[in-house]
Design a protein around this nucleic acid. Structure first.
Length: 444
RNA sequence: GCAGCAGUAGCUCAGUUGGUUAGAGCACUAGUUUGUGGAACUAGGGGUCGGUGGUUCGAAUCCACCCUGCUGUACCA
């Protein structure tokens, strides 16, 4: 690299975007195959919608209407603004509205797709990530809400999490609505500030939340956050509400009954679960991990939830007049991958190819013959992709973690018995071509 | 966005109060071994010290601004 490097394209990635390597992708594939299997079992339809939508299809449901395009990546196509989707729920609402007459009602669909958020990234948190969504549209039945939780739990356990490693926290927007009535808050901004404060109880504890409900709070770095300015007697009422051990709203009482019928008990009633969204109208879920997650320096980090959801009875109605009450749940797959990879006992099998070394270009036909036989037997096999000294070829095989190499030089070709070298223990044996596949299977 | 900390080789870092040609380990390349990887030894390549401007006889080191990263915080459909 010389002076010219200034003229060369940057090898840096845009903020919040990452290359994902095989190890991670295989874990992701493992999770996806579990999801698909369970979705079929639960009877959801598979759907894909495009990455881009017209901005007004997703933008006009933003909670803060005063800054409609903040947080999304957008560009102007001809004269219309389009944006990369920021979740899979808004596109679902658009899809349901567009296809309302054709789709079954209720409509159950699941979707796997990349979403983009123009926000500051954090550990295990990117500006481009894969999300899984499952929703019921067109039913008010609480059976749907309950089943979503049971289903998520089945997915997590299928992926290797034990009951003690995760919990689904549940609350209802109805609880906070009643609370607001009780303490007489009507102003929307104050409601939002209050909800956001409550949402932080995990991290800040009640004392921090109390500060945010009152005048405000100074964080570790010295930054100051303005509070909701509630009266201390109202804060007292909120504190009492948060202490409740069991729900007194009808929806949650019903949902918990259904859980019992499913024998599902890995949930927790938690009135501090808020999920910040304005569009939720009933039950709210949040999927939390119960073990520490660390960054690549080994420090424990604030990881937050790996997914959540809830009931949103009015969202589809934003596109017109539809009878489409809905409930859904989503998981951030990359966050689940990140967390899963931290579990020591978690392993995903990677099959690496057996490498056939190249001694002499004129013997290519012989190498190909061995390759065809092994591939036919279902063994991942490659002829060394290059022209190097044997030492280089061995180093290559070692580097890609190949289980074995096949040495098929002049002498071996003459006798029809290639040498199989086990790269884990260095042992070599000379084997007839037609017995090669079976021998290799013993090694793998 | 706000705040704190930090940017020296591909990676992890050292670099003394400003002083010649900027160092180490790992990785990489070549060789010791022209049919044998993971060990050892030898040699080698690789840096406008994040960028720009300033102070100075002299800056990786001091100052200003900018960029990037980490952590917290805000926002998070």
């Amino acid at each position: 690299m010389t002076k010219e490097k200034n003229n060369k394209p940057s090898k840096e990635l845009p903020l919040g975007f990452v290359d994902r390597q095989e190890k991670e992708l295989l874990v992701r594939d493992f999770i996806i195959s579990n999801i698909k299997e369970i979705m079929i079992k639960y009877g959801f339809q598979y759907l894909e919608t495009p990455s881009f939508e017209y901005s007004d299809s997703i933008g006009k449901f933003l909670p803060d209407k005063d800054r409609p395009d903040e947080g999304v990546f957008s560009f102007k196509d001809e004269n219309k603004w389009m944006s990369l989707r920021y979740d899979l729920t808004a596109p679902l609402a658009r899809y349901v509205a567009k296809n309302y007459l054709e789709i079954p009602k209720p409509f159950k669909r699941y979707q796997l797709g990349t979403v983009w958020r123009n926000e500051k990234p954090g550990p295990g948190r990117f500006r481009e990530f894969l999300q899984f969504d499952a929703d019921f549209v067109g039913t008010k039945s609480l059976q749907a809400d309950a089943e979503l939780c049971v289903m998520i739990s089945e997915i997590l356990e299928k992926c290797g999490l034990t009951k003690s490693e995760y919990v689904i926290k549940i609350s209802s927007r109805k609880i906070t609505e009643e609370l607001f009535k009780k303490i007489n808050i009507n102003e929307n901004q104050q409601k939002l500030t209050t909800l956001r404060a409550l949402d932080k109880i995990d991290r800040l504890g009640w004392s921090g939340v109390k500060e945010l409900l009152g005048a405000g709070r100074k964080d570790k770095s010295g930054d100051y956050t303005k509070g909701a300015n509630l009266k201390s007697k109202d804060i007292k009422v909120i504190e009492e509400t948060l202490k409740k051990k069991s729900p007194d709203t009808e929806d949650l009482v019903e949902i918990f009954k259904i859980f019992k019928n499913y024998n599902f008990n890995n949930f927790e009633f938690d009135p501090s679960v808020i999920r910040g969204l304005e569009y939720y109208t009933g039950a709210i879920f949040e999927v939390n991990l119960k073990f520490d997650v660390t960054n690549n320096r080994g420090q424990v980090i604030q990881f937050g939830s790996i997914g959540g959801g809830g009931r949103y009875d009015n969202l589809v109605n934003n596109f017109g007049n539809f009878d489409a009450p809905a409930t859904g749940i989503s998981i951030g797959l990359d966050r689940l991958v990140y967390a899963l990879m931290q579990k020591k006992e978690f392993k995903v099998k990677q099959s690496k190819p057996v490498v056939i070394c190249v001694f002499d270009k004129n013997s290519m036909k012989e190498y190909i013959n061995v390759q065809l036989i092994l591939r036919k037997a279902g063994i991942s096999t490659e002829i060394y992709p290059g022209e190097s000294k044997l030492k280089k070829q061995m180093e290559y095989a070692n580097k890609i973690k190949s289980p074995a190499v096949i040495l098929y030089g002049e002498d071996e070709i003459k006798s029809g018995k290639p040498t199989l070298r086990n790269l884990r223990n260095g042992k070599e044996q000379s084997i007839k071509i037609n017995e090669l596949a079976n021998e290799i299977k013993k090694i793998i």
